[in-house]
Simulated assay, not measured.
Amino acid sequence: MTPRWRRLAVFPLVAALLAGCVRFVPLQVGDDPCAEREGAEATAPERIAIEPDEFQARHVGHTADGRQFFLTTPFEPGAREFVALYLFRADGSFAEARIDAFTDGEQAAADRAHRDRLRELGEVTHDRISVAPFSVERFGTTFGLISAPPETEDDVWWVTAEPGDYMAFSPPWDCGIYDT
């Protein structure tokens, strides 16, 4: 986009601001659900929240019988990909992991397994879950939402989706968002 087009693209926003049609409201203290909370980094999480999104947390929610689920695609860089369905009891404690392994080039089979795992859940709602960190061993690999203590005095606790370290949660644990 050329500088001339950028100015034209900004013009409607500036006009709306001047006309009073748009109002910016600054956050007040306590408005940000993801704001750091004193002492939060000092303790391991009992539960972490995961908010559904269009990326790694596309399939999180609740089953018709009240269980919580997280259907995801962990990976070992350059080696294997997985389809992992993690099931949790209604209270968020870990119940079961159903994991399928695929090598590079088996994308059609992985997509089919993903659809099958979602279908086997039956009717679901895609919404926020709050679950306990956990780990399980399958295919010679550690899977799960694995908590790790601070490595330095300035660091915080982390919970990462493994293998692949493709989602990283940090305090506050009830925030529901992650880093990639």
Score class of each variant (00 low, 15 high):
residue 1 M to F: 08
residue 1 M to A: 14
residue 2 T to D: 14
residue 2 T to M: 06
residue 4 R to F: 10
residue 5 W to N: 06
residue 7 R to F: 07
residue 8 L to S: 12
residue 8 L to W: 10
residue 13 L to Y: 13
residue 16 A to I: 03
residue 16 A to M: 09
residue 18 L to A: 14
residue 20 G to P: 02
residue 21 C to W: 15
residue 24 F to Y: 15
residue 24 F to W: 14
residue 25 V to Q: 06
residue 25 V to A: 09
residue 26 P to C: 11
residue 27 L to G: 06
residue 29 V to N: 05
residue 30 G to M: 03
residue 32 D to F: 12
residue 34 C to P: 01
residue 34 C to R: 02
residue 35 A to D: 15
residue 36 E to M: 04
residue 36 E to T: 07
residue 37 R to D: 02
residue 38 E to V: 07
residue 39 G to H: 12
residue 39 G to M: 09
residue 40 A to E: 08
residue 41 E to I: 06
residue 42 A to H: 07
residue 42 A to W: 12
residue 43 T to V: 15
residue 44 A to R: 05
residue 47 R to M: 07
residue 47 R to S: 05
residue 47 R to E: 12
residue 49 A to S: 13
residue 50 I to P: 01
residue 51 E to V: 14
residue 52 P to V: 13
residue 53 D to L: 05
residue 55 F to S: 12
residue 56 Q to H: 15
residue 57 A to V: 04
residue 60 V to F: 04
residue 62 H to N: 10
residue 63 T to K: 05
residue 64 A to H: 00
residue 65 D to K: 00
residue 68 Q to Y: 00
residue 68 Q to S: 13
residue 69 F to T: 00
residue 69 F to I: 05
residue 74 P to N: 12
residue 75 F to D: 10
residue 75 F to I: 07
residue 76 E to L: 10
residue 77 P to W: 14
residue 78 G to M: 09
residue 79 A to S: 15
residue 79 A to L: 14
residue 80 R to C: 07
residue 82 F to K: 02
residue 87 L to Y: 06
residue 89 R to C: 00
residue 89 R to Y: 13
residue 91 D to Q: 11
residue 92 G to L: 06
residue 95 A to N: 07
residue 97 A to D: 08
residue 101 A to V: 05
residue 104 D to Q: 15
residue 105 G to W: 07
residue 111 D to Q: 13
residue 111 D to P: 02
residue 112 R to W: 09
residue 112 R to P: 01
residue 112 R to M: 10
residue 116 D to H: 12
residue 116 D to M: 05
residue 117 R to W: 08
residue 118 L to P: 00
residue 118 L to R: 06
residue 121 L to G: 08
residue 121 L to M: 10
residue 125 T to P: 03
residue 126 H to G: 13
residue 127 D to P: 00
residue 132 A to F: 00
residue 134 F to N: 02
residue 135 S to K: 00
residue 137 E to M: 13
residue 137 E to P: 02
residue 138 R to G: 07
residue 140 G to L: 05
residue 142 T to D: 09
residue 143 F to H: 00
residue 146 I to K: 05
residue 149 P to Q: 13
residue 151 E to I: 12
residue 152 T to C: 05
residue 153 E to M: 07
residue 155 D to F: 08
residue 157 W to R: 03
residue 157 W to V: 04
residue 157 W to Q: 06
residue 158 W to N: 01
residue 160 T to E: 02
residue 161 A to R: 00
residue 164 G to I: 02
residue 164 G to D: 06
residue 165 D to L: 12
residue 166 Y to N: 04
residue 166 Y to G: 03
residue 170 S to R: 03
residue 171 P to H: 08
residue 172 P to W: 10
residue 175 C to Q: 01
residue 175 C to Y: 02
residue 175 C to M: 01
residue 177 I to C: 14
residue 177 I to Y: 11
